[in-house]
Amino acid sequence: MEIRVENLACARGGVPLLDALSLSVQPGQALILRGPNGCGKTTLLRTLAGLQPALAGSISLPPDAIAYAAHADGLKSTLSVRENLAFWAAVYGSGGVDAAVARMNLSALADRAAQNLSAGQKRRLGLARLLVTGRPVWMLDEPTVSLDAASVALFADVVRGHLAAGGMALIATHIDLGLPEAQVLDLGPFRARLPAPGRGGSFDEAFL
């Protein structure tokens, strides 16, 4: 029930970004991916979430375990908070909408349409969605963007609860999350060096 990645290489738009990346996450642990903007944090998360094929290397994940949350929250503005969560609960076949609403203290806004929420509230609703999915592995891309200090603390608390319950979290961010116990992985050293001309492999090399 752990995540293991060996010698992973991934690219964005044909340009290799990361190379020879290995990591592993045990249940109950969180891993924070750090690195300058555009170094491939998002690309790595999307590759692990299965949205994007890896160039090389192997990824072993427990099946049906991933809950992915991207920059955009995927909220329907004309649906209310409860309707949004109810939809995702039905998709993931799990319940707990009210618990999630309460946990992210959105109870007061439960019936307000998502378009009338502030950026921070929308972000909290996006995180509430994670609770609703009931998936052990959380893959979060910049989860605390546009959150105030109180909400960041709330988020850290929710993640701690998730880890205590045996869950795992992979978080790509360059803002401090207030999760001291989380491991940190800097993606800098795994940056793909300029491919030597003529070497086969990824798409563009064939043309260099």
């Binding site: 999307r46 979430a49 299965g50 949205l51 049906d64 991933i66 809950a67 992915y68 949350a69 991207a70 920059h71 955009a72 929250d73 995927g74 909220l75 329907k76 503005s77 995702w88 998709v91 993931y92 076949g93 969605r129």
Partner: peptide, 15 residues
């Protein structure tokens, strides 16, 4: 769905 990101989420959903 593409603009508000739910297409990505649907792609990683169980269905």
């Amino acid at each position: 769905d593409w603009e508000d990101g739910s297409l990505d989420l649907l792609a990683t959903a169980p269905i």
